[in-house]
Amino acid sequence: MAASYDQRLVLDSRLDEVSRAEKVVLEAVVACNFSDTDQFAIKLALEEALANAIKHGNESDEGKHVTLEFHVDERKLTITICDEGTGFDPQRVPDPTLDENIEKPYGRGVWLIKTYMNEVSYNDQGNCLTMVKFRTHATSSSGR
């Protein structure tokens, strides 16, 4: 029978919680046969999304929590991450690849999430992010 996992995690607003969440999600993703490349993308997007939720959403307030819910099967991974902050407008995040922003040492997290995941959406308030990664099929014989 095909593997499928659903889980909900509640994280404290501490950055050391990020690795705990990543471990849970990546174990499920590996069990669903996602490739190394997919795992790299998922780990990166998770890191950025959770760090944003903890630092910018909840402003590292330990009285606030981040919830992470995910569903993964052998077709795709869907993750929703919500913080207790006031939210933000993702349209207003400047393009970090423009020449005027290239030397700024911040502002690349949202861009990386959008690039590495197949679908990214926010709720109206801007404090819940849903991202989807479709499993790519192995091309081990293609070589590079």
């Binding site: 990166l44 890191e47 030397e103 040492p105 911040y106 502002g107 690349r108 997290g109 990386l112």
Partner: peptide, 16 residues
């Protein structure tokens, strides 16, 4: 094996 945008920020600060 992995790095995040925060690590990129550190590299940019070092470069500057």
């Amino acid at each position: 094996d992995h790095l995040s945008s925060a690590a990129l920020g550190t590299l940019i600060r070092a470069n500057t």
